[in-house]
């Protein structure tokens, strides 16, 4: 049995809204320890993963291992229909195996229940790298304010939706996007006096090409946290992470492009 309390605008809802146009199904694994959501876009260019430990989820109840595929559009449409003041609970029970129920209870105790079919999402689950892998295989990381990161992603995506590059050295971080009529180039210098807001940590310079559209899609999710951390590798997907609550986190992986 699973009971997942949700609030309009919480990280779970935010991630679902963000990936609405990229993916049809979110694969969710729940255990007594917490929730792990994973969604892959239909073109297999990006993955988003949300980890939410039970202690960060007030009212979370799960007494067994549950692995389900949630139809993203149905869930988002239902949440959008609810009122901001409603208490929302996602339920998966033994008696209604194969379906999930989304219950909305207003402050006056009026209720609306949505019931929809679960989706088979076994093929959409990938074994993602752990922190040890990121430390050993990635040549650099950059910590920066999430609002700033979103602004850049929006700018890159508006300018050129197909081709962007992130480069990092121990002195600066640069973003580049190629548009049809021109290019955009953004540079951040590492400030020696303050590394709490912006910090570059590289073993060797890294240059990574990617599609800015995907990064822009996820960037709004990262504003749930004050800061984001980018992990860059010459041979692996770009990974962006932000922390949610005490021990929760959101990660997105964007597959690179091989430069001509």
């Amino acid at each position: 049995m699973l009971e997942l309390p949700l609030v309009k605008g919480d990280p779970f809802h935010h991630v679902m809204e963000a990936i609405l146009d990229l993916s049809d199904v979110a694969h969710v694994v729940c255990t007594t320890r917490g929730l792990n959501l994973l969604a892959v876009d239909t073109k297999h260019l990006a993955i988003v993963s949300l980890l939410f430990p039970a202690e960060d989820f007030k009212g979370y109840t799960c007494d067994e291992y549950i692995s389900i595929g949630i139809p993203i559009r149905d869930l988002v449409n239902a949440i959008r229909c609810g009122d901001d003041k409603d208490t929302i609970t996602l339920k998966v029970g033994e008696e209604n195996f194969g379906t999930i129920t989304l219950s909305f209870v207003s402050p006056e105790k009026n209720t609306v229940d949505y019931e929809f079919r679960l989706v088979d999402a076994k093929l959409e689950r990938f074994r993602l790298p752990d922190r040890h892998f990121l430390r050993s295989k990635y040549q650099g990381s950059v910590k920066m304010p999430s609002v700033e990161f979103r602004r850049i992603c929006k700018c890159l995506s508006n300018f050129g939706d197909e081709y962007g590059v992130i480069s990092v050295t121990d002195e600066d971080l640069t973003y580049f996007a190629k548009g049809t009529d021109g290019d955009v180039y953004v540079e951040y210098k590492q400030q020696e006096e303050d590394t709490t807001i912006f910090k570059i940590d590289v073993r060797e310079p890294v240059r990574l090409a990617f599609n800015p559209k995907y990064l822009n899609t996820f960037a709004k999710v990262f504003t749930l946290s004050g800061q984001v951390k980018l992990f860059l590798s010459k041979t692996h997907p770009l990974m962006v992470e932000c922390k949610i609550g005490q021990k929760g986190r959101i990660r997105c992986f964007v597959a690179p492009k091989v430069e001509p």
Binding site: H44, A46, R125, F126, K178, P237, F253, V258
Partner: peptide, 14 residues
């Protein structure tokens, strides 16, 4: 503008 790689080339199904 480069050849787009798939995420499947990096991560195996769980």
């Amino acid at each position: 503008s480069g050849v787009q790689l798939s995420i499947k080339e990096f991560y195996r199904p769980d």
